[in-house]
């Protein structure tokens, strides 16, 4: 006995009400886009982690900060921009005749802290979409299900037939919307948590690097005085 082609997953989509089809289409697009972010963000996070490790290693091996800055300032990396912010602020604060040490330390900390926050904001911009997909798509799917079940009951009322064979396909089509919503939401929530943890670790490493660089500049500030 062959299964009714109308009850296959594709058949459920094609035979659903137009409004439910729109909802399912939106959910599929959300799933597609969230997986694009999941894959792309995974590469981006991995690249950022490797860049921090490499830059940190190069910084520790460098003998001269100015010479290292000339080599590393042009890199399109978060940690390089934090480093550049510190160097730029150092140069601005020490270019005058009188050096305000306390003020320079505060400005260095503020400049590098702001750059870290800016880099984290830039990194986490796409995670918001994952969070939104994870939170909203189940409800959107539920909305499609409610519409589908309403249509099923309207059909029952019109046909004056409540047999299970009449009711079941409409209910299955309606539930398919919830299934797609969950299909989009579950990986979005899982990877949002994984990537949030990864971003927190990157932020901690950037802050550690900024603190260490601040300490180095602070010592140099005392020596220059």
């Amino acid at each position: 006995m062959q299964i009714d082609p109308n009850l296959s997953l594709v058949g459920l989509f094609l035979h659903a009400n137009i409004l439910v089809q729109v909802v399912m289409g939106l959910l599929l697009i959300a799933s597609l886009w969230s997986w694009a972010i999941i894959i792309g963000f995974g590469f981006r996070l991995r690249a950022a982690r490797k860049a921090i490790e490499k830059f940190d290693g190069d910084y520790r091996e460098a003998d001269d900060i100015d010479e290292f800055h000339r080599r590393a300032a042009g890199r399109d990396q978060a940690i390089a921009r934090v480093f550049s912010a510190g160097v730029t602020e150092w140069r601005r604060s020490t270019s005058g005749k009188a050096i305000d040490r306390e003020g320079t330390r505060e400005r260095l900390a503020t400049a590098m802290g702001a750059t870290v926050a800016q880099e984290i904001d830039r990194l986490t911009g796409q995670l918001n979409f994952l969070a939104t997909v994870g939170a909203v798509t189940p409800f959107v799917g539920l909305f499609g299900t409610v519409l589908g079940i309403m249509n099923s009951f309207i059909g029952i009322a019109q046909e004056q037939n409540t047999s299970l064979a009449i009711v079941a396909p409409g209910i299955a089509e309606a539930l398919f919307a919830t299934a797609i919503g969950l299909f989009a939401a579950i990986p979005a929530v899982i990877f949002y948590n994984i990537y949030s943890n990864g971003v927190n670790r990157i932020e901690a490493r950037l802050n550690r690097f900024a603190d260490g660089f601040h300490a180095t500049l602070s010592r140099r500030l005392e020596n220059e005085a």
């Binding site: 597609l32 997986w35 694009a36 894959i39 792309g40 590469f43 981006r44």
Partner: peptide
């Protein structure tokens, strides 16, 4: 990376 992710999502 975004383009690669989008292509991967479509293929997946």
């Amino acid at each position: 990376r975004d383009i690669f992710g989008l292509a991967g999502a479509i293929v997946g």
